[in-house]
Design a protein around this nucleic acid. Sequence first.
RNA 1: AAGCUGCUCC
Length: 241
Amino acid sequence: TLLAKICELGNFNLALLIMDEMIQNNVLPDSYAYTCLISMLCRMEKVVTAVILLERVLERDTSSLNQFMYTSVINALFKTGQPKAAIYYFEDMVKRGLNPDTVTLNAIIDGFSRLGQVSKMDDILSLMNDKSLLPNLATYNILLHFQSKQQNMSECFALYDMIARKGFVPDKLTCHSIVLGFCKSSMTDVGAKFLKMMIGEGTEADQLTFNMLITKYSERGELVKAFDLLNIMNSVGVSPN
RNA sequence: AAGCUGCUCC
């Protein structure tokens, strides 16, 4: 419990110290303690320490292993530009009979999408399908963001439709990606219209997305439109920063 | 209880 709270507060040095003390006193950390520590280290970009800790669990306490530890490490390795290591742990996870779930595969799809490795993304999507794992909203948001960065707006709309068809409610990340695609395509007005439409449909309004459009309009000298958005922000209760 | 999705500005 103490470890969990310290992890939550983000003090990994103290958490590691306490873990050492536990081990010295023959109180072995349990699965929960290890998971908290590893995920905290990954969040704080201490991926090397996280991997060392995962290796310790692999050596002495394989019964404590779970998907959370692996997903945290796989995600952090991708994010720090170490895809080979990430895949190594993915394969290790599978070897040990820990079934990757949608969250694990999402982390990998996102990792490959950042590297522009489309065929690997497809491989993981096929795997998801083969294992009868259902994509979640994050899966679609990852794909949507990937397409929007490349201004593939028709792909974006196909994904947007898919989100609704699968019964998910688009969120602020969904909205951000679509508007991003329009901004990049210099279709700022369409982006603004889309944002207004999504807000009208109940999507949580979002400061970042407004900022993106306001910045774009400001760059283009379209200040009337920029101020119009600022007014809308106020009227829907999103505070400007 | 813990793991996935934001090249807005700074």
